[in-house]
Amino acid sequence: MTEFDEYWRAVDDELAALPARPVADHVPARSTDRFTAYDVRLTSIGPYRIFGYLSVPAGDGPFPAVLETPRYGSVNLAPHYRDRLRYITFTVMHRGQRLADVPFQAAYPGLATLGIEDPATYVYRAIVADCLRGAEFLLGHDLVDPARVGVTGDDLALITASRRPGFRAARSNGPLEALTEVTGSPRAIEFLDVARHPCSARTFRVGTDYELTHEDSADDEVLDTWLARELGVSPIRKFDLMPS
């Protein structure tokens, strides 16, 4: 086994050895007659308690589902209303981000290089683990249609789909934004190279399959339509979605 494979196998082993023990608390404010929202707390490697936003459409299911991997920044928004109408959604807050920041609070700038001196201590090893834990949670949800599960985010989404078969579609808006803070080529980031994380899901990646026009409403429509078609639902433009 290569060092690369060993590295990620060890993460899988650590996750497998720790029960996730998810707790889902109903959130009335984010629930409507169309979907029900929960705040979820679950255990990832460390052990560390991470957070996720879960939303489940009304009805009997099974439903198509989407995992959102976290952005680079202290805050991830709750999944958009349009997505909660169509999918079971789960949005992971990795360790250090808001709602998963006890006891560890990530600094911005700074998180991108935390522990980067050694691949074994690099914070992104744990961040990927947190995404994988989120994937396991969503893929294991009773109401998820296993043939229609997608993952979206930056390249963390592709890495997640590579390491957790079960996703039909993986959509990336491009390289990890954290890498813009990294100077030189420390060994630790080699383990995040998407080229070394092939996945069996169908993929759509900005910069590879699509060049942004920078008209972000138009770009969003293209990205939304791709995932909606893959998962068998209708596209929805955010701008068209107004409270009735």
């Binding site: 009335p28 928004l77 209303y81 409270p243």
Partner: peptide, 19 residues
């Protein structure tokens, strides 16, 4: 604004009013 969108942050107002 909260009447014109379901996007955050204004959606926070819609959620508050829901409760």
């Amino acid at each position: 604004s909260a009447k014109l969108t379901h996007s955050y942050p204004y959606e926070e107002i819609n959620e508050y009013v829901r409760v």
